[in-house]
Amino acid sequence: MSAQARTYHHGSLRQELVREGRALLIEEGQQAVTVRELARRVGVSHAAPLRHFRDRDAVLGAIAADGFDELRGHLEAARGPGDLEPRLTAYVRAHVRFAQQNGPLMQLMFASTEGETRDEASRSSAERFFTLGAELLGERDPSSMGPIPFLLAATTEGISALAAAGRIPPDRVDDVVTAAVRMLLPQIEQQLG
């Protein structure tokens, strides 16, 4: 998106504000995302966004929810049939690639998944995302999950954060993902067994 204000013509103002907010988040960081700035960039009055969002935190929550839904869509391929190792590798690779392309968005998404700062839509999107990972590992009841889903999440989020920050050279990311999956696979297979 351009930093220039443009005129909002039609469609869903809420979706346009989320889309523009995401672009602003990635371009300039979370502190730049304000209701006033989004209204300016979309070309509506300063009060218009408040018909869709109670405040800035609600806008950020909607951006995070949209990010979780998009990421979950990228990870759905790992849910299909076939051997676990390639599916798990595809899952982690997709997560890391998303982080490399959307670093500030990932920081927002994973900064907090609970608490009063998250609205219901954001919490629900985050839960659907985390449920997908747990299902890949054979977990069906989130209240009684073992340690493996948390270990996979920590590994995946860690690799993603390092890759997004450039701390893993881009040409080494796939090697790191492959090594991590191979390290975790025996524990995961034991849990699934």
Rank of each mutant, 00 (worst) to 15 (best):
A161N: 09
L137G: 01
H10W: 15
F98A: 13
Q31C: 14
G67C: 13
G138T: 04
Q30Y: 07
R19E: 07
T156K: 08
A90C: 02
A58H: 03
G193M: 09
A48N: 00
G82M: 09
A126F: 11
R36N: 00
G138M: 00
I159N: 05
R6F: 15
F130H: 13
D66L: 07
S112W: 13
Q4C: 08
M145I: 00
G193F: 13
L108R: 02
V96I: 08
T113H: 03
A58T: 03
R51S: 10
S144W: 10
D57E: 14
R182C: 14
V42E: 00
T7P: 05
I63V: 15
L60V: 01
M109C: 09
V177G: 09
V181R: 06
G193K: 12
P186Q: 14
H46R: 15
D171I: 00
E85T: 00
N102R: 13
Q187R: 12
E16W: 07
A111F: 09
A180Y: 09
A47F: 04
V92W: 00
G11C: 08
Q101L: 15
E157G: 04
I63F: 02
S122A: 11
D66T: 10
E139I: 06
H52Q: 03
I148D: 07
F110G: 11
L71H: 06
R54I: 04
D175K: 05
P81M: 13
R172S: 15
G138C: 04
L60I: 14
R14L: 08
A64N: 13
P86N: 14
G158E: 01
D175C: 02
P169N: 04
I148S: 03
T34V: 00
A163H: 09
T131P: 03
M183F: 08
E120S: 12
T89C: 09
V33E: 10
T117Y: 10
L25R: 01
A65T: 11
D141G: 01
E76K: 13
G67E: 14
P149H: 02
H10I: 15
